[in-house]
Each structure stands twice: as C-alpha cells, then as structure tokens.
Design a protein around this nucleic acid. Structure first.
Lengths: 154, 154
DNA sequence: CTCTGTGCAAACGCTTTGCAACTCC
DNA sequence: GGAGTTGCAAAGCGTTTGCACAGAG
C-alpha cells in the first residue's frame, strides 16, 4: 500500500504541498462521493476550521490536481463540476457512473467493466484509424432513477 | 420521407408552432453541427433577420423541444450546452460523439454502434437488476485530438 | 377576453480573475 | 528576494426569471 502517491508529482512540477492542498486531497481520499468544489469547501470549514481556506483556493487546487492527473473531473448534468481521486490508496480502480436524475445519487459500478473495456479499446482503435483521431479518454454514464426515487414517484 | 414529424407532438401538447419555433427547428434540421443556444441565436439574426428573436426565446424553445424528445441536449465539456435534432427527416439515426478537446470539433460516428448497443443493452439490464436502477439513457463520448490539431501541435 | 408566447433587463449560480499580502526556500 | 500560494472582492459567462406587452384562437 503506497502512501501519498501524489507527492512525487507535486515535487516534479515544482509545486508546494501546502496545507490547504493536503487537506483537499485528504477529503477526496476519504469520501466515496463525488463532491463539488463547494462541497469540499464546506467540508473544509467544518472539519478543518482552524484553517481559513477560500473557495478560490479549492477551485485552483482542484484545477492543478486535474492537470496532474491526480483527480478526475465529471459533469453529471446538475450544473456543477464534481471531482474524484483518480486512484485510491489501493491503486487504480477503473469504474463508470450510474446517475440518478432525480436525487443526484451516483453509483460507481465496476460490473461489466472488463467487457466494456474490451469493446472500448476496439472502438477507440477503429475510430482512431477511420477518423485519424488521437483518443485520450472516454466517458460512459448511465442516467435513470434510483430505487428510492422510483418508489417516491409512484 | 416524413415531413415535419414534430408537428403532432406540438399539437398534442397544446403548444403553438410559432415562427420563432419553426425557425429554430429549421436551423437544427439543416445543420450537421451541434449548435449552442447562442449559435442558433446568431444564425437567426443572420438568416431570418426580418424577425427579432431574443436569446431567451431560443433557450425556452430548446427546453420545450428537449422535453418533447424532439431535440437532444449534450455537454461536450466546453461550458455550453449543445443541441441536436433527435431525428432527421429520414428517421432516427443513433450515433455517438467524438470530441476534439483542442478545437471543439465534433464527429458523429455510427461505426461500432451495433456492438456498442448490444453491450449497452446487456450492461443496462445487468445494472438495473443489481442496483435496482431504472435506466433511461446512456452517454458515450470519446475525447481526443482531431487530425488538424495533432498536426498543429507537433 | 384569455391564455400562450415573447423580448428586454435583471438576476442567478458556478467559476475565474485581479490584486495585494504572505510564505517558504 | 523571487517564485509560488492565498483570500477577498469583483468580474465573467452561460442560463434562467420577472414582468409587461403582443398575438392567436
């Protein structure tokens, strides 16, 4: 189990691993949710209230983390950007998302990932050839109603 | 070849097929692009300049069209919502998108769609069972660099 | 006359930027 | 001291809303 696998990336880029940055990474590493910048900001206020970290810093830190590949950025269609560590302490864990359009609940699923991965690789290769595209990433999401929201609607 | 396949939907909903609405549908039906609300607004000004259609009307019309299933809404990560007719005059034509992260160019592709569809159906069914989700739609997109942007970067 | 549709301006919500102060090497 | 970092306030930008007016049935 590697600790602080991101340290090297910071040093390599000549960036400082300051306490606001550590706190933000810490929050992301301890949640299974997909917090928005404001969610993170509020958590900082609640749990790290000695510090006075501004929302701007949260945005700026997240941008850095995204650029370094430490954090992934997602849009689930609710008007705010959401963030997720790209790698847990136990290593990389590829998954996609299932989004409830009613309550915003998000489920990370890994089922079918192998099959998806195989098809995606094949598709990426085919598209790259046909359209001369250099593909860097893919996005797969399913939208629908979670169990609770189905019940509440009936 | 059906003409104005959307008329029925308007009448059914008790909505009027006004000239701004017709113009917006017309623009969408004549482009292969994925215009934003502002793109549509500007096209209206240029090509239908007798009329004085406001941006608000464009937004409101698009919302109606999306709710009626006549238009699909997409987010390609550039901060603006993009729109596309759900059906051409020659009928429904399922495709996904290849997005250039450099210039914003978008390619509609239909290659591999059958395989994708088959896998998606299977995945949807599996996810629905496992997580008791009622899945309404999926999203698949590939991001990368188009041919031109690869050349410009080297 | 009534109900829908419309344009304008203002409001909104999330995100980014300008700037001066601050910190760490 | 110089480069990176930060908080605050203000600006930016796409989108939505309030409101009074116009227009169709």
């Amino acid at each position: 189990m590697r600790k602080c696998w991101w340290r090297g990336k910071f040093e390599g880029a000549g960036l400082r691993l300051t306490s606001p940055r550590l706190a933000i990474i810490d929050i992301l590493s301890k949640t299974t949710k997909h917090p928005s910048a404001e969610d993170i900001y509020l958590t900082l206020r609640q749990k790290y209230n000695n510090d006075n970290i501004g929302l701007t810093t949260v945005y700026r830190t997240l941008e850095i983390l995204v650029n370094m590949g430490i954090v992934y950025k997602f849009d689930f269609g609710d008007g705010r950007t959401r963030y997720e560590l790209s790698e847990g302490p136990d290593g990389f864990h590829h998954h996609h998302h299932l989004v409830c359009t009613e309550c915003g609940r998000i489920i990370d699923y890994t089922d079918f990932i192998d099959e998806e991965k195989e098809l995606l690789d094949r598709t990426e290769k085919g598209l790259a050839e046909k359209y001369h595209f250099q593909i860097h990433k893919h996005l797969i999401q399913f939208y629908g109603l979670c169990e609770n929201c189905q019940l509440n609607k009936s």
